[in-house]
Structures are given as C-alpha cells and as structure tokens.
Design a binder for these strands. Structure first.
Lengths: 170, 170
DNA sequence: GCATATAAGTCAATAACACTGACTTATTTT
DNA sequence: AAAATAAGTCAGTGTTATTGACTTATATGC
C-alpha cells in the first residue's frame, strides 16, 4: 500500500500558529469528532434513532426543565427539525413536557426514567472513549484541550459551558 | 431570560476523570465543532456545495495524488456518497483525475488551480477561527489540545495525522 | 380591553448527505 | 484462465436538515 501521507513539518515557533499547524488542527478535529460521534451510532440504530435524537436527549438531560426555544438555541437547528425528533422522543416516552406555571406558553421538558436510561446508555460509550483519551494525555493536556475548545466556541455561546479554570500551570 | 445553566462542579482531582468532566468534554466538542464547521458553510452555499464537498476538496488538497479508495477510507463514507460529490467537483473543474501509470485501475486526484483557490477560501475562515483560539489559549494548551484529540482518534486512523510531540512540559 | 409580541406547534415542499445492494468495466494478480 | 481489486454506476431509501406560511395559546404594553 505504501500510503504516502506527507507531513513534512517541524514545529519552529508554536507561539505564532503556522499554516501547517492550523491544518493539523482541522484534521484532528475532523477525525476526533468523527470517531467520537461514531461511538453511539450503533446503539442509536437499535432504537431507530439518529444523532439528532441523541443530542436532544443529551441536552434535555443536562438541562432539566429546559424550554423548547432554549433547546433550539443550543442545537441551532430549526423548529421543524427539532419537532420531528422531539415528537418521537415524547411519543415513545423518553421525554415529557410540562406547562410552565409562571408562563403558560412555555413547555418545560425533562427526561423520564426510560429517557434517562437511554441517555446514559448512549453517553456511557462516549464517556469511556473520552476517559481513555484523558488518561492517556494527562491532566495538563486536558486543561489545554479545554482551553482551546472553549476558545473555538462562538462568544455568544460560551456561557453554555463552564469556563476553563485560570491557567494553573504557567 | 435568566437562563439557568447549572454546572455545579469543582475540579477536585483531574487525574481520575469524573462524570461531570466527561460530560463537559462532550459539550465542548459539540459546541466547538458546531461553530468550527459553521465558518465555511456560508461560503459553501454561494457555490451550491455542502460540507461533503469541502471535506473532499480539503483531503484531496492535503494529499495530492490520493486515490479514490484512499479518500473513501479517510472520509468513511460509501462509494456512492462520495461519487455524487466527486462528480460535481470534477465536472465543475475543481478536481482532476489521472490514471496511475503504475496501476492503471487507480485514479489519482489533485486540485486544479480553481480547486486550490476554493479550498483556500474555505479554509481561510476556519484557520482564522482556530488561530484565534490557539493564541488565546497559549502554546501549552495547544499541545494539550493536540494530545487529547489525537487520543480520541481510533487507533486505526491515527497514522493519518502527525503524532503529538513527546511531552515537552513535564 | 385591545394590539402586539412571544412560545409552541403544524403543514407542505425541498435538499444535502448518507445508506444498501447489485451490477459493470478495466486492470492486475495468482 | 480465474480471482481479486479499483472504479464507476443504477435504483431505491432514510435521516437530518432547510424555507415559508400558518394556527393556537398566552403574555405584555398601552
């Protein structure tokens, strides 16, 4: 086969990111995300669901009592796209909606025990995947991973994740 | 609005990844990848193309002379899925195929100048996005980012990206 | 109270991107 | 000559997303 995969580069000055470094980052993101999301796909298929169901399940689980519009803001998809997924999850008893007492237009959502079980089943595989990478890379690397990924998130959405701790190793 | 986004967690011992840390990682990956890929989408739309075209364009550009089956192995999609995308790119003059002299069954691909231009136009935005995150996070963080992402890639595919340097910051 | 705005849900039509399975053609290997 | 490989193609399908228009219920501003 002799796959010629030519990365002729030496890191000279990592302070000023070079073109090769940036391309490298894109490839890392592509492959890592592809393999990370691939973990749950086999399980999902058994339930006749896709990644969209998983994402909804995950973020409802992580934000109990979330409203439909808040979930839309997180997923950045249209109402119609979400609706199809949400209908399935509600019809099959993974998610329930309750009218908000304070504002009766709002439907606050949470997982049923069945939904929690499925969410955990899906998340477990991905967790193991990440835990392995975390262990292999070590705590300093994990901190760096967090800092860079946080910086990749649009400023408007950074409030949705915990901020990285102040540089504890400098 | 008062978005209640409850992340009640304190990092006690980053050596043993806790459940919260792993969930945190999943959210970081989701948001960062979403915003990273979103960069090029607007440009792509002007050319009536999607992410699949971009990925093909990118990996052909990064691996000049790549064969169809090698590209399939990278993208992990089916031949039919690739074919539709590839046909467009070839028909519109972004990519050319040439029969391999050594093995005349193989079609080696490379970008035309037009293809190179589009690829760079698309990549430029994403590069700027990553460069900013790299600068904000600092070189140590970048190294950690690389180590963790490398660990997230399936072992069978790690040979496709440069390995992270040996821990240079004990 | 009335007008307006907001939250949610729905309808119809469409597209991008992926899939499976079967098949053909050309070429290389055994 | 037979088998394997690389590429390309056909028909049919499914998931996830899109846009645009519309309805219903509820809340808010005046």
């Amino acid at each position: 086969m002799d796959e010629q995969v030519p990365w002729v580069q030496q890191q000279a000055d990592p302070l000023a990111p070079r073109d090769d470094d940036l391309r490298h980052a894109m490839e890392l993101l592509f492959f890592a995300y592809r393999d990370f999301t691939g973990e749950a796909d086999a399980v999902l298929a058994d339930y006749d669901m896709g990644r969209a169901h998983h994402r909804a399940l995950y973020f409802i689980g992580a934000n109990t009592g979330i409203s439909v519009s808040e979930l839309l803001a997180i997923l950045k998809i249209t109402k119609q796209s979400l609706n199809r997924v949400l209908s399935t999850l509600i019809d099959e008893g993974y998610v329930v909606q309750e009218t908000d007492d304070g504002d009766r237009r709002r439907r606050l959502m949470h997982l049923t025990p069945k939904g929690r079980d499925l969410e955990q089943l899906l998340t477990r595989r991905q967790s193991a995947h990440i835990a392995r990478a975390y262990r292999d890379a070590g705590p300093d690397a994990v901190e760096g991973f967090r800092r860079v990924l946080f910086g990749l998130i649009n400023e408007a959405d950074r409030h949705r994740v915990p901020p990285p701790g102040p540089a504890a190793h400098g």
